[in-house]
């Protein structure tokens, strides 16, 4: 059931309204690709994008973020935490990335409450845009049950088939939160859905169900068991021999949340900041501990660890898979290692 129908120009006007009180981050065109980037006006967005090279994760969990400031002086060692609470709107977020944000929400709020993430997240309004077809070849979002996002966005917009009346793209809008409902209704944008709109929406949903191919013979619920039986597979060694351990898969992943901390000192040497930066389990030094011992020194062990995290361990702990099937890891891999291929090869082995 739709809550509202808006045209693309009405949606852009809504974004301009959001921009009065929020920073806007959405799809912009750069070097022949799309990236999530900051804009000050909605007409700088390109809502007809297929996919963005990187996910909007960096807006919530920056690649390099200040956690606290510290200083030493006559009063001893003092720290003060740094939180970014400036209101933000993420616009044009696809279901895969919305599901990824939902996972980050869980991870950063369960055992260790991460106020640096949550303070930003609480101030974030999400305008989701649904995908009628796979954004590009190689994605396996359907297999990960992440090509739909019924929760996570404040408003979710699905592009409806043309109705023959207007050339403007029309979106069926579903309110995901009270904030989303209030925002759209108070601005009086768009119209209540007609019976025809509801029919168009139903057709959209059934067309979409057929448009996404199955890429893996086991769906996300069966992957933990598949992996359970694949720990000693020869595949890990055979595939990882090509791995550069460059971490591109990790750092382009919308659900990877590992980070490293370090201190940045001012030249005075008496004050500075504690920073955290994105880290990745495929990097050789990721698992180095005191005494220089590396408990995952081999690329094969690291590759297995990543796949287990994505499709088994995170799911067992958080209830949802650590992968949304966006295939950014596969596209980013400088050695052309494909996680879809890994799942398929493992499925053949067992």
């Amino acid at each position: 059931m739709l809550d509202r129908v808006v045209s693309q120009s009405q949606l852009l006007a809504l974004v301009d309204e959001l921009a009065l009180s929020r920073r806007i981050v959405g799809p912009v065109r750069r070097s022949d690709r799309h990236f999530y980037g900051p804009v000050d006006r909605a007409d700088k967005l390109d809502l007809d994008f297929k996919y963005c090279v990187y996910s909007p994760k960096a807006a919530l969990f920056p690649a390099d973020q200040t956690l606290f400031e510290f200083q030493t002086g006559p009063d001893g060692f003092q720290t003060s935490p740094v939180y970014d609470e400036s209101p933000l709107a993420l616009v044009g977020v696809h279901p895969c990335d919305i599901n990824a944000i939902r996972l980050l929400d869980r991870v950063f709020s369960n055992t260790n409450i991460d106020e640096h993430y949550l303070s930003r997240r609480r101030q974030t309004f999400i305008v989701g845009i649904d995908c009628p077809t796979p954004c590009t070849s190689g994605v396996f979002c359907r297999d990960m049950k992440a090509n739909e996002a019924r929760e996570g966005a404040d408003i979710m917009c699905s592009p409806l088939p043309p109705n023959g009346v207007s050339d403007d793209v029309r979106y069926g809008v579903v309110f995901g939160t009270d904030a989303g409902r209030e925002f759209v209704l108070y601005s009086h944008a768009g119209d209540p859905p007609t019976v025809d709109d509801e029919r168009a929406s139903e057709r959209y949903i059934s067309d979409k169900a057929r448009a996404f191919p199955q890429s893996i013979p086991y769906d996300v619920d069966a992957l933990p068991e598949l992996l359970e039986r694949s720990y000693d597979s020869l595949l890990w060694e055979a595939t990882a021999r090509r791995c550069y351990s460059c971490g591109s898969c990790n750092l382009s992943c919308p659900t990877c949340y590992c980070f490293n901390t370090y201190d940045r000192l001012e030249m005075t040497l008496t004050s500075g900041t504690r920073q955290r930066e994105w880290d990745g389990c495929q990097l050789r030094s990721f698992a180095v501990v005191a005494g220089d011992h590396n408990f995952r020194a081999k690329a094969a062990a690291r590759l297995r660890h990543r796949i287990y995290r994505k499709a088994k361990w995170v799911k067992e702990r958080e209830g949802v898979a650590g992968c949304v099937g966006c295939a950014r890891c596969d596209r980013a891999c400088t050695a052309k290692i494909s996680s879809v291929e890994i799942y398929n090869q493992l499925a053949e082995e067992v």
Binding site: S245, C246, S248, L251, W278, L283, T334
Partner: peptide, 9 residues
């Protein structure tokens, strides 16, 4: 780490 890490960041 290799340079790729910084490109991604």
């Amino acid at each position: 780490d290799p340079v790729c890490v910084e490109c991604k960041r």
